[in-house]
Amino acid sequence: MVPSVRCPLFQGIHELSIAESIADSVRQHAALRGGRRVRRIGVRVGDTSGVNAEALDFCFAIVVRGTDLEGAALDLERVPVRFRCEACGHEFEPAEFDPRCPACGVERGRLSGGDELSLAYLELDDEEPGRPGETTG
């Protein structure tokens, strides 16, 4: 179903490509760990990554529908923009990229966080699938 008010697909189709990249990476990692079922996928989405978390969630559900990853939950953690003051080293979350350091007052804040778009963790079932008799309950 396409949401009626704001369709993420029309905000930017690149969330679809990114959802596919996430699914590919997750499958590689799960395969390396005996093909265990993936329950939860942690993704860190930086504020300047250009990725809309809502659209990504929507696209991921489409991408994994009918596949081994169907039902895996996407846990999207927003990573706010952070600045580091080049004068005093203080780290802060700027309002609208305002470079003025709240600690020393100098306007030399430089972006130090909020760029990333990364796979953070996977939650996998303890048991490998499809091997009746080997389960230990």
Binding site: S25, L119, L122
Partner: peptide, 15 residues
């Protein structure tokens, strides 16, 4: 039971 495995990699590493 599930196990949480840390990954820490760029989503667009293939690109």
């Amino acid at each position: 039971m599930t196990e949480r495995v840390p990954v820490r990699e760029n989503v667009l590493k293939e690109n």
